[in-house]
Design a protein around this nucleic acid. Structure first.
Lengths: 121, 121
DNA sequence: CATATGTGTAACCCTTCGGTGACGCAACCG
DNA sequence: CGGTTGCGTCACCGAAGGGTTACACATATG
């Protein structure tokens, strides 16, 4: 339960970060400098974004001589997607069940909002 | 393209917000006051989180007498999940293609990083 | 009517975050 | 060797975000 993919969500929440990721995906790879050249932000900003994406596992940097080439890792995306779909259907089922129970109770005892009961002695 | 679900990501990125959502899912519904009672934050904080979740379409509030009952909307979750899965496989395919091309070029002309070409006259 | 109980909202604090500029160091090229 | 070129990082700024308290307003309930 809870949210294992929280880092992924946070990483994907920022528009600039998303553009960085998209750029990497369409080019195959890229360095902080080359990415900054196509974005309205500085190289330092791109580096910070790449660091966040890296912590979330969405990107991977490998040293190639004096430069660091970053590539996209798609696994966390798919994994998070599957996890979200699971939660969605799980909650759907639960909410449907609750709704059925509510309608049942209503049919049996109309106008009664038995809401909550104290179980104290 | 781009990110239609950006609001959803931002909404899901915060732990407290996630707990609010989970609580709503397991109870079926709840008011800002009742939720705040089970969380380590004030009612006002919960209201702000609910507002964000509402803007993202993840929650829906309906007035019931003098109180506002919030319920979870699971559709955006599933939709975002599907969209993410789509992007993931799309990128996967693209990256695989790029990798194949790179290996091809390498076999044909080893040690040549033909990286980028200027098309200027 | 008086009184709880709930919501709405305004004012404010502090931390995080997206972003910048500047400087130092490593590596490649001529 | 000397000049580029590229990465790493420090210091700083403004805005946004998560929180809080306090107070005004609405609606049930006795």
């Amino acid at each position: 339960m809870s949210a294992p993919a929280e880092g992924v969500f946070a990483a994907l929440a920022d528009p600039t970060r998303w553009r960085v990721l998209s750029l990497l995906a369409e080019r195959g790879d890229g360095t902080a400098t080359s990415l900054a050249a196509e974005l309205p932000v500085s190289r330092v900003a791109v580096i910070k974004h790449l660091a966040i994406l890296d912590r979330a596992g969405l990107v991977e940097g490998r040293r190639r001589g004096r430069e660091v080439r970053y590539t996209v890792r798609t696994e966390p995306l798919g994994e998070t997607a599957r996890w979200m779909a699971g939660i969605a259907s799980q909650w759907d089922a639960r909410l449907a069940a609750i709704k059925r129970m509510a309608e049942d109770g209503e049919r049996r005892a109309p106008m009664t909002l038995d809401h909550q009961e104290e179980i104290s002695p």
